[in-house]
């Protein structure tokens, strides 16, 4: 249905109509209205003349500048080539760094997974061992009673053995024991030591698993005893 000729569309709408920037329904209604409204048709015609004139002006050829063109293109091509080469270089660098990181991480992960077994195996293979000879509770006159681990450490290797940490565990719990700063077993030496932990006045040796773990510079040494 068209708008009566007496009800005109706003000139702003005719401007948008000319540019095809109105919804189809509105556009169709306005097209209908044009047939019966000479004043709206005159507005549209005026806008059309201006638009066509502007389009024609835009067709004017631009002055040519062959030397400028050649220089501009040559410089730009060189810049693009340099930028592409830098990008390619960065891409390769990134790729190499990624490969190194991934390889490093994989190696570290693998090492972490295999190390305990490997070092224990290495320690075993090198004939270094710890033997938990016995566990007992000793009562002294002055000091409180203590749970004692009698241990023999044998270094059958050609290198000296440094003991870094000693951890004892028993049915009462796990405890790290202090170690003398230079607990060192020379090659071929067999050392007997007592590692102890204080216990309560009335403590008794409970049945269960008693374990000693020595952390050495080469790995771990473990032995255990089961008290029935």
């Amino acid at each position: 249905m068209s708008t009566p000729a007496s009800q005109h569309y706003a000139p702003l709408e005719w401007s948008a109509y000319l540019d095809g920037e109105l919804p189809a329904a509105r556009r169709n209604a306005m097209r209908e209205h044009l047939r019966e409204c000479p004043s709206c048709a005159a507005i549209l015609r005026s806008f059309e003349a201006v638009q066509r004139g502007a389009e024609q002006l835009a067709q004017e050829p631009a002055p040519t500048q062959p030397q400028l063109r050649t220089r501009l293109i040559a410089v730009s091509a060189a810049i693009i080539a340099r930028s592409r080469s830098r990008q390619r270089w960065l891409l390769w660098l990134g790729l190499i760094v990624s490969v190194v990181i991934i390889t490093g991480l994989t190696a570290a992960l693998w090492h972490g997974m295999t190390q305990p077994r490997a070092t224990t195996a290495a320690v075993a293979a090198s004939k270094v061992r710890v033997t938990l000879d016995r566990v007992l509770i000793t009562r002294y006159f002055v000091e409180p009673p203590s749970l004692e681990y009698d241990v023999t450490i044998h270094n059958g290797d050609a290198r000296p053995l440094e003991i870094i940490r000693v951890i004892v565990s028993d049915p009462l719990g796990e405890k790290e024991r202090p170690v003398a700063s230079a607990l060192r077993v020379e090659p071929g030496q067999t050392l007997q030591r007592v590692f102890s932990r204080p216990v309560g006045e009335n403590a008794q040796l409970r049945p269960g698993r008693y374990r000693i773990l020595l952390e050495t510079s080469d790995g771990r040494l473990v032995d255990e005893k089961v008290v029935p």
């Binding site: 631009a62 501009l72 293109i73 091509a77 693009i80 080539a81």
Partner: peptide
């Protein structure tokens, strides 16, 4: 053009010089 080929850059220039200049 993206690879910096001078002939292609020249075509781009010739194609849009007129509207840009206008």
């Amino acid at each position: 053009c993206r690879r910096g080929n001078p002939a292609a850059l020249g075509m781009l220039y010739d194609c849009y010089r007129r509207p840009v200049y206008y």
